[in-house]
């Protein structure tokens, strides 16, 4: 491939076109998967005994009232009819009302999502700040004491259950510093200081695990890159170590690093379910758990749909960023 590729205007336009087509194709695949997911979720929740009416009325329910309630929720219709009705409303942006709380589903999912997104990005930031430098250090001191220590941290961090780290941190700060986090969640727009003190322990417990994964990944990539010809050439040319590191090495591990960040973000989304329940944060994970418990189908369906779409969007952004980092990458 000629080195001036991407420099000419015509080529640039052509690239933009193919990029547009690529994004459209990926978004179409995303919609298909989201639809399939919604079908699976819809069938799954309706295939088991017990529904919201049973939950509301209890064991000894009046059959007349139960029948009326089922009609009210549309549960008396065949499943496919319920699904098409739901889908039709979702397409117009109407996710319905929560069956147990009577609030609009969209608002509930939105405010829960805000909490989880804050948790996820704070964790990603902290994990990157801890993990990447540790990985670089370990790679520089490969085989020596510092490397071994960092590798120990990685192994332990990956083996420890995230909720256990959370519990131990909770115990540690309350005995060591005589401090415990506030119990009621406050959004950052209301009181930033209090919000941060609530978020501190959940973020730290999630970040320790991900930092370990990060550091291991960065170390592995740098160590294998150090053996490559371009690094040897750079050393032979007499380039200063710093420039080899920052202009050559980091650039070359940028693609795997971005992929990894995407993976980590999705992992954090999963970990958030556990951590939110431990620290009583009103995030998406807790919303999903409570909607499963109460069989609040509209909330559950919307929440799961949001999770899947986010996970797939993260993957799409990751793939697109390859192209920005390295224009040689062909999107297909």
């Amino acid at each position: 491939m000629p080195f001036w590729r991407g420099c000419s205007r015509r080529q640039g336009l052509k690239d933009a076109e193919s990029m547009g087509a690529y994004i459209v194709k990926r978004l179409a695949a995303l919609v298909v998967t989201a639809l399939l997911t919604s079908v699976v979720v819809f069938l799954l929740v309706r295939s088991v005994p017990g529904d919201v009416v049973g939950q509301m009325l209890g064991q000894t329910s009046d059959p007349v009232a139960a029948k009326a309630l089922r009609e009210f929720f549309g549960l008396d219709q065949p499943v496919w009819q319920q699904y098409l009705g739901w889908l039709g409303r979702v397409i117009t942006g109407d996710f319905g009302t929560s069956w147990t709380r009577g609030q609009p589903v969209l608002g509930m999912v939105g405010s829960a999502l805000a909490v989880t997104v804050q948790l996820a990005f704070a964790t990603l930031l902290l994990a990157t700040l801890i993990g990447v430098p540790l990985g670089i250090l370990a790679a520089i001191y490969e085989g020596r004491m510092l490397d071994r220590l960092i590798q120990c941290f990685n192994l332990l961090g990956l083996a420890a259950p995230v909720f256990w780290i959370g519990l131990m941190l909770l115990f540690g700060v309350s005995t060591g510093f005589d401090w415990s986090p506030p119990l009621m969640y406050v959004p950052p727009s209301e009181a930033l200081g209090e919000n941060l003190s609530i978020m501190a322990l959940p973020v730290l417990s999630l970040a320790l695990l991900q930092a370990a994964a990060y550091s291991q990944f960065v170390r592995q990539n740098i160590v294998s890159a150090l053996g490559q010809d371009y690094v040897r050439t750079a050393i032979a040319k007499g380039l200063p170590v710093r420039s080899i590191f920052f202009t050559h090495l980091l650039r070359n591990i940028a693609i795997p690093l971005v992929t990894f960040m995407g993976l980590i973000l999705i992992q954090i989304l999963g970990g958030a379910v556990i951590i939110e329940s431990l620290f009583a944060l009103p995030g998406l994970g807790r919303l999903l758990l409570s909607s499963i418990e109460t069989r609040d189908y509209p909330v559950l369906q919307a929440g799961l749909l949001v999770v899947v779409v986010i996970a797939m969007l993260v993957n799409l952004v990751v793939d697109l960023s390859y192209r920005i980092i390295d224009p040689r990458v062909q999107l297909s």
Binding site: V32, T33, L36, T37, V40, V41, L44, V45, V48, I266, Q267, L269, G270, G271, V273, I274, G285, L288, L289, I292, E293, L304, V307, V308, A311, M312
Partner: peptide, 24 residues
């Protein structure tokens, strides 16, 4: 392949929560 994609598009723990939560 498509079916597998559906399962893989969930973070594993969320899928686990969904299945055990719904089935009991």
């Amino acid at each position: 392949g498509r079916l597998v994609d559906v399962i893989l598009s969930f973070p594993p723990i969320i899928f686990g929560v969904m299945v055990t939560g719904i089935l009991g």
